[in-house]
């Protein structure tokens, strides 16, 4: 019963957060002492052209009216038309969402599979050479500029060794879009060639995104295991002669995993941050590369749309993580 309440209150928090996000993005783009219309119109536009565009876009109305319209637009999914593709921005974002999700999910899976075992080993072999090496690696993993790592991986694996595709999501036309996830679509259509190609294209970008995330997970799971290993319940089980391997792999691990799960939302945030630039390097047709193209086109509305979508995605993921945590932790979430 308490869990249901918790889930409901988290769900209820989603609405004001999104509303706040929309307001903040609006304020940032309108209150900052600059003229977005002038930037949109381009440097060569005459004053008349700028004013005409201002009226056309509704920037001549009072701020409150603009905010209200902004809300209406966002809620009805109308974010304007992209200068780059000449299509509605919402439509573009929606079409590109699966690419970003596929990449992020692949990356977080790799990061978890890599990070948790290494973190546990690091904690168990505390201060041994393997722990020292892993600690250096995990600090390093957070110090790379993701776009640079992406380029170096391209240089090494695609250009020099030629064992991974340079960029893009797939070679050829790929499977018919159903879910928008290349791997899932080719799997359900039995298109093995496409599946192989999709997975090959996923490797480098997913690895680029996974490394910093794995570094974070190693740190959290190491700290989590150390905290539990020094806890009274482990001392008690040791005092009662429960086999120590069983204590570690059954009891300590479960506790440490639960505390690591709470960090997944945070890690996802870092991952999406990096995705913006990494997608650009790999020409990955997701939200991030859309944002970068919009920057190059000075497409103000598209950037706002992207900001709201990404913010919403992160808020939604945090919500899911909170709910998942409250379900797997018998104590209930914080």
């Amino acid at each position: 019963m308490r869990r249901l309440e918790m889930v409901l209150s988290r769900l209820a928090w989603f609405v004001p957060t999104m509303a706040g996000l929309i307001v903040i993005v609006f304020l940032i783009s309108n209150v900052i002492p600059t003229d977005p219309v002038r930037i949109m119109a381009g440097e060569n536009a005459t004053q008349e052209q700028v004013e005409a565009l201002r009226v056309k876009l509704g920037y001549d109305k009072p701020l409150a009216v603009q905010l209200l319209r902004h809300f209406q637009d966002v809620l009805s999914g109308n974010l304007g038309t992209s200068i780059y593709t000449q299509r509605p921005i919402s439509e573009d974002l929606f079409k590109r969402l699966p690419a970003t999700l596929e990449l992020s999910i692949a990356a977080i899976t790799v990061a978890i599979l890599l990070g948790i075992p290494l973190g546990v080993v690091s904690a168990l072999k505390r201060n041994a050479w393997i722990d020292q090496v892993l600690r250096v690696l995990s600090v390093s993993g957070l110090a790379f500029a993701a776009f640079w790592l992406a380029m170096e991986l391209q240089f090494l694996f695609s250009m020099t060794l030629r064992i991974a595709p340079l960029n893009g999501r797939i070679s050829g036309f790929g499977p018919d879009p159903v879910t928008g996830f290349m791997t899932i679509d080719s799997l359900i259509q039995g298109d093995w060639e496409s599946l192989r190609s999709a997975l090959a294209h996923l490797c480098l970008p997913a690895l680029t995104l996974a490394l910093p995330a794995a570094a974070t997970i190693v740190r959290f799971s190491r700290a989590g295991v150390l905290e539990v290993i020094n806890s009274n319940h482990v001392l008690y089980q040791r005092a009662m002669g429960i086999p120590s391997r069983l204590i570690v792999w059954k009891y300590v691990l479960r506790n440490a995993l639960i505390s690591t799960v709470t960090q997944i939302g945070l890690i996802f945030g870092v991952l999406l941050t990096n995705a913006v630039v990494v997608e650009t390097v790999f020409d990955w047709p997701g939200l991030g590369s859309f944002a970068v193209q919009s920057i190059l086109q000075s497409d103000h509305k598209a950037i706002i749309g992207f900001t709201i979508w990404t913010g919403g995605l992160i808020v939604a993921i945090n919500l899911l993580v909170d709910i998942a945590h409250s379900l797997i932790d018998p104590r209930g979430a914080r």
């Binding site: 993005v25 940032i28 900052i32 941050t273 630039v277 920057i295 103000h300």
Partner: peptide, 24 residues
């Protein structure tokens, strides 16, 4: 604190892109 929570909900680079792009 709610306002800062909302700021924290969005990846920093996304907001920074929005701001920096607006300003030039």
């Amino acid at each position: 604190m709610r306002v800062s929570d909302i700021f924290l909900a969005v990846p920093q680079i996304v907001l920074a892109i929005a701001i920096a792009q607006t300003l030039g």
